[in-house]
């Protein structure tokens, strides 16, 4: 993997993360923010895998695995709350 290619990937993923982060902050409605959080967590999972790749240790993949499983639960909890299911 050449350096130029690495920088391109980094910029693309960081840009996507930043744009969805902006939507998370601007929001306007709570569901908009929740959708942005969902997108942000998935892009960051890719980012965590990329960091593990840069460090070159497969042990660090566990973090990405935990995050991809549990961020789903967090978003589901928010959705159930907005739906009126957590009373």
């Amino acid at each position: 993997m050449s350096n130029t290619f690495l920088i391109i990937i980094f910029v693309l993923i960081g840009g996507g993360l930043f744009l969805s982060f902006l939507r998370l902050i601007i929001g306007r409605k709570a569901t908009d923010r929740a959708v942005a959080l969902d997108t942000t967590t998935l892009i960051s999972t890719g980012f965590l895998v990329l960091v593990a790749f840069l460090q070159g240790r497969s042990l660090l993949l566990d973090v990405a695995l935990v995050y991809s499983v549990l961020s789903f639960l967090g978003v589901l909890a928010i959705a159930r709350y907005l739906d009126g299911g957590l009373k």
Binding site: I9, G16, F18, L19, S20, I43, G46
Partner: peptide, 16 residues
């Protein structure tokens, strides 16, 4: 990898 990064960027842009 490049295509995946591009699609992830597109998803961020779409959400924005």
């Amino acid at each position: 990898t490049g295509l995946g990064a591009l699609v992830l960027f597109a998803s961020g842009l779409g959400v924005f």
